[in-house]
Every structure is written in structure tokens, then in C-alpha cells.
């Protein structure tokens, strides 16, 4: 049996506990207000529109899935022209596959398979920044599919693999254990003022050739300077090199059939976007801030220079 004082003490603890709990609830329901109170509260709808980040533990991944097979089709259409059909990378665009075991070589080959640490990073980056000219244009399922295909290019999953919100963090990248925290300062020199080294040991190991010219742009003859400047700033990225299947500036054979079309069709395709046999022309080249006049001036310039 409890002795009376003990019972009283226990009751007191319960009562006090209840009081404290209700006090905390009151504090939570009336959160302290902001000191300045500027701006507007961010609504859940507003946050949902921008809250695109995915974390290495998969936090943030939306529901959905995509297969390697579906990914191959999207990749060939939207990615291969820069990254290569096998992820090898065209020109100086990043290669996505290969390079296993090369990290200690004189020329390391850093790819998703050889270097990256988390699969989530791939999903996040494709979703936020790719395709290069049309970021945030792929659906969630398409991002799962392309991610799956890049993993497949790196021999990290089989050809019948389906990547999903549930399976993504299960795919571990081989290089993940090799990332370490920053240990700097890690290199130590001492201040010395006299006879710090033997002058006879000094030799020139490397000398950069003087006056290596910075490549200067060759000015193309053109009366259409407005079109040319729009072209240089916005179109040249694809139409100088032909990436994305883009017809190359000045290549008459490339442009013959197109120039044959009504120029209005060319304008319309450039403004509204166009799916051709060889690739996609994004609306306004992905530079949505360009006006119709700027786009048509650039088309005029392209046509004029390619006859």
C-alpha cells in the first residue's frame, strides 16, 4: 500500500505534467511572430512548385518509375547528341559512362559510374538542369527512365531494370565510399628569407609559350547584325556545331531543303519549336525571353549565311 505522502507526491507529478503539457501546446499553437514581418507566408502550393531538390537519402523523390527501355528512347532523342549514344560525350560535353578504375591515372575519366557518389544526384540534376536547352521539361517518369538508362550505360543495372521512387536509393554507385571530408590546411610551407634553396637546383620545368593567341572570332560578313548577335548569343551553341541534329550555319547542303520551305514555316518552327527527323528544335532555342522579332532576325541571318 502507498503511504499517503507518497500518493500525494505522485498525484502532484501527474497534475504538474498535465499543466506543463498544456502550456507547451499553447506555445506551439501561437508561434512567436516574425520580428520584421516582411514578405508573405509561403503557401504549400507555392512551395510545391519550387521544392524540387532530391537528397542523397532519396528525400524529395516524387512517386513514379521508368524503365531502361523507355529511357533509351528518350536518351537517344534528347541526350545522345551531346552526351553520345554510349554516354561517351561529344566534343567537350560531359561523358556519362566508362572510366572505371581510372581515378588514379594521369588523366582520370570521371563519369557517373567511375566518380559520382549517389544515384539521387543523377535524378536531381537531370530533372533540374536537363535537357540543356529545356530544363524541367521532362516528366517525373521520364526522369526515372533516363536515370535508369544512364545507370544501364554504366553497367550498374540490367536492361530490364525499372527505376522507381522505391528502388532508386538501392542502386549504389561504386565510388561512394571514396569521398572524404576536407582536411585542409594540409600543405605546409615555412617562411624563409635567405638561402632558402640552392640556386644550382633551379631549372625551368614548364614554360607557357608567349602570346598564344586567344582564339578570336572570325567575323562573318553580314548586314543583319541584330540577327547575328541573337544568333551568337542563343543559337550558335547548337547551330555552329550541329549538336542536337541542328543544321549547321553555312552548310548549304544542310539548309537546302529548309530554305526551300516557305520562310514563314522556318520562323514558326523557330518560334514554336519543331520535332524533325534528326532532332528537336526547342521553342526559341530554349531562350524563352527572345522576342518573335529577335528569333526571326536570327533565322534570316542563318538562312542568309547558309545559301
Amino acid at each position: 500500500m502507498f503511504r499517503f505522502p507518497e500518493l500525494l507526491r505522485r498525484c502532484a507529478i501527474v497534475v504538474c505534467g498535465l499543466l506543463l503539457a498544456s502550456a507547451i501546446t499553447a506555445a506551439n499553437s501561437a508561434k512567436p511572430t516574425a520580428y520584421y514581418g516582411y514578405g508573405e507566408p509561403a503557401t504549400p502550393q507555392q512551395i510545391a512548385g519550387w521544392d524540387i531538390d532530391i537528397r542523397s537519402d532519396g528525400k524529395g523523390l516524387p512517386p513514379g518509375s521508368g524503365s531502361v527501355q523507355d529511357g533509351e528512347i528518350i536518351y537517344e532523342e534528347q541526350c545522345a547528341l551531346c552526351h553520345g549514344s554510349f554516354g561517351e560525350g561529344e566534343g567537350r560535353y560531359p561523358s556519362l559512362a566508362g572510366g572505371e578504375g581510372s581515378l588514379q591515372d594521369a588523366r582520370p575519366h570521371k563519369t557517373v559510374g567511375s566518380y559520382w557518389n549517389y544515384t539521387s544526384t543523377l535524378w536531381d540534376y537531370i530533372h533540374r538542369a536537363m535537357p540543356f536547352t529545356q530544363p524541367e521539361s521532362l516528366s517525373d517518369d521520364e526522369v526515372y527512365a533516363v536515370t535508369a538508362y544512364v545507370l544501364y550505360l554504366n553497367d550498374l543495372v540490367d536492361g530490364d531494370f525499372v527505376l522507381s521512387q522505391e528502388t532508386l536509393t538501392q542502386v549504389q554507385l561504386p565510388n561512394e565510399p571514396n569521398f572524404v571530408p576536407d582536411p585542409r590546411p594540409d600543405v605546409h610551407n615555412k617562411r624563409c628569407m635567405r638561402e632558402c634553396k640552392d640556386p644550382n637546383t633551379i631549372s625551368i620545368k614548364f614554360e607557357a609559350a608567349l602570346h598564344v593567341p586567344t582564339p578570336t572570332k572570325v567575323e562573318l560578313p553580314s548586314e543583319n547584325t541584330a540577327g547575328e548577335s541573337v544568333y551568337r548569343a542563343s543559337c550558335a551553341v547548337c547551330h555552329d556545331s550541329g549538336i542536337g541534329g541542328a543544321p549547321v550555319l553555312g552548310d548549304a547542303s544542310d539548309w537546302l531543303a529548309r530554305i526551300g520551305k516557305d520562310v514563314g514555316t522556318l520562323y514558326s518552327n523557330a518560334i514554336n519549336g519543331f520535332q524533325g527527323d534528326r532532332g528537336v528544335m526547342p521553342a526559341r532555342g530554349g531562350f524563352t525571353q527572345l522576342s518573335d522579332a529577335e528569333v526571326t532576325a536570327a533565322v534570316d541571318y542563318l538562312v542568309e549565311e547558309s545559301r
Binding site: R55, S56, Q104, N117, D124, Y125, A129, N178, F179
Partner: peptide, 23 residues
């Protein structure tokens, strides 16, 4: 926790001679 996005994994990490990378 950190997010480990592309610019702090694939890029802007420092590859060392032993094959490890500083993040």
C-alpha cells in the same frame, strides 16, 4: 543534412592521388 547535388559531387570535389576525393 547536405543534399549532395551535382555541383558538390561530380564537380567541385578534389580528386587526390590515392583515388579518394575531398568533398
Amino acid at each position: 543534412k547536405p543534399w549532395y547535388h551535382r555541383e558538390e559531387t561530380s564537380k567541385y570535389t578534389d580528386l587526390m592521388p590515392d583515388g579518394s576525393s575531398r568533398e
